[in-house]
């Protein structure tokens, strides 16, 4: 009886899994294996490719522009992720103590930027940072400062691109934090209040330690997402001025257009994959294990 069931399940299982397996094979696995191969070849659209060993990887790792793009990506992530997490953390704590009617309005409002596309966000923020009629210069003008060409100066271009990234991302992180806050048992706070603990003591001894896993999760996923960001710089600055906003993925994308560099840029994207892919794999393992719910 059992054996018969087992066999039946085999057939049904393969039938139902066929679509996902076939699609993933064609559109993910084959391109990935192909990319692995190309990274060891001097590849071109127009001529025979030749095997070059690790030369592509060597060239990428010694290319100053690639190293600079990594640096840009790191700076960008360090601007966006902490800002976003701090805003989200404070905001989630505020929403948690709000009346439910007002809270649901606020939750809806802050979620809306999350569903806006990178292209539209770029268009909006290019206008906000416009030299003549933009909002940013109007605000600094109110404080008596001279107008600035935000996106054209090396010092301000990257922070100006970080602003829409925070705007696009903080709604979701706030709501995830809020879900985390709601999971902390009320009795912990009540017990602390009986002992006379104030707002900051409760925050420091209950909220922050118990939110550790959620914050860690958001930190790592936020970091990998932001270091992969390229749409904003592509549309807002095209990577300039002086490649000060060329993130690693924009570097890779730009090199795809240059036939000679295809092998190089694929090597670069694979290097990035090794780093980012392993980070997300670790996070996935931790979240999937029971360790994630200690405390």
């Amino acid at each position: 009886m059992l054996k018969k069931n087992f066999r039946q399940d085999n057939a049904v299982a393969y039938l139902l899994l066929a679509p996902i397996v076939i699609l993933l094979t064609i559109f993910v696995i084959i391109p990935f294996v192909y990319a692995l191969r190309v990274s060891f070849y001097n590849w071109s659209f127009y001529q025979e490719s030749t095997f070059v060993g690790f030369q592509n990887f060597y060239m990428v790792l010694t290319d100053d522009l690639f190293l600079e793009s990594i640096w840009v990506g790191l700076k960008f992530a360090f601007m966006v992720v902490p800002t976003m997490l701090i805003i989200s953390f404070l905001f989630a704590n505020i929403i948690k103590n709000m009346g439910s009617g007002f809270a649901s309005f606020v939750k809806t409002s802050i979620y809306i930027p999350t569903i806006i596309s990178g292209i539209v966000a770029s268009v909006i923020f290019v206008f906000i940072f416009d030299y003549a009629g933009g909002l940013a210069n109007y605000i600094v003008g109110l404080f008596g400062y001279e107008p600035k060409a935000w996106l054209a100066e090396v010092a301000s271009a990257l922070p100006s691109i970080a602003a829409p990234a925070v705007w696009l991302g903080f709604g979701l992180t706030t709501l995830i934090m809020l879900a985390g806050l709601h999971d902390i048992p009320k009795s912990y706070y009540e017990a602390a209040e009986l002992e006379g603990a104030g707002t900051f003591v409760k925050m420091g001894y209950i909220t922050i330690p118990l939110m550790r896993n959620v914050v860690l999760y958001l930190l790592v996923t936020g970091f990998t997402a932001q270091i992969s960001q390229f749409e904003l710089s592509l549309v807002m600055t095209g990577g300039g001025p002086l490649s000060s906003t060329t993130t690693p993925n924009l570097y890779i994308l730009n090199h795809f257009r240059n036939d000679v560099m295809v092998g190089n840029s694929i090597a670069a994207s694979l290097l990035l994959f090794v780093v980012l892919g392993s980070i997300s794999a670790i996070i996935f393992r931790v979240l999937n294990s029971e360790k994630a719910i200690d405390g």
């Binding site: 996902i20 990935f32 192909y34 795809f256 694929i266 994959f273 996935f284």
Partner: peptide, 24 residues
């Protein structure tokens, strides 16, 4: 098959962008 499917989650789009283009 579980590993085969899940592994695709960790392949970033940019790494296969160009080769996907060649495939299609």
């Amino acid at each position: 098959l579980w590993v085969y499917v899940i592994i695709t989650m960790f392949i970033p789009g940019m790494a296969i962008l160009l080769t996907s283009f060649i495939v299609v």
